[in-house]
């Protein structure tokens, strides 16, 4: 008797364990509920609508490749090494998707990772690395350097 009860609850668990998401390129992906719950936008929908998990939840702004990356990141408990393999494009896609899905931990993690890329680098290095075009006139640039003199001291040579 006890055994059947156990099996029933197990079957139940299995049923709610995954949610199907439909990505922008039309791929249906089954995703573990624990991961889906980090996506506030999906979570609130599921909770409010007591949703039927067999109907795919549409994510018109997220591609299957990006969703793959996000799932891997969450599964690996936000592994820095894994994220270092991302191209700039992938990084951007993941960031934009994390913002859209309202995944707070992931957003925080990526923002920290990008901040780490900016940290302790010269202005020229950052501009090159991210292809940032310096659109200041020399006068404007000099003005900014002057107002915040202390952060540029001895940094100006390149």
């Amino acid at each position: 008797m006890q055994k059947t009860e156990g099996e029933e609850s197990k079957a139940e668990n299995e049923e709610v364990k995954q949610v199907t998401l439909m990505t922008s390129d039309g791929v249906k992906m089954k995703v573990e509920i624990s991961i889906v719950y980090e996506m506030e936008i999906v979570r609130s929908f599921i909770e409010v609508n007591d949703a039927d998990h067999s109907v795919p939840f549409p994510l018109p702004n997220v591609s299957s490749h990006t969703l793959d990356l996000i799932i891997e990141l969450v599964k690996n408990e936000y592994d820095d090494e894994f994220m270092k393999t991302f191209s700039h494009d992938e990084l951007k896609e993941v960031l934009v998707a994390a913002n859209y899905l309202n995944m707070k931990t992931l957003l925080d993690f990526i923002a920290t990772a990008i901040a780490n890329l900016l940290e302790k680098k010269s202005v020229e290095f950052i501009r090159n690395f991210f292809n940032i075009v310096n659109d200041f006139t020399p006068e404007e640039e000099a003005e900014i350097r002057k107002t915040n003199e202390w952060v540029f001291q001895d940094l100006d040579e390149d």
Binding site: A115, E119, K120, N134, F136, R145
Partner: peptide
């Protein structure tokens, strides 16, 4: 996420 001096310094990147 940056220290204040780094955050201020980012002003120079672009408009």
């Amino acid at each position: 996420k940056l220290c204040i001096d780094e955050a201020v310094r980012c002003s120079i990147l672009s408009q």
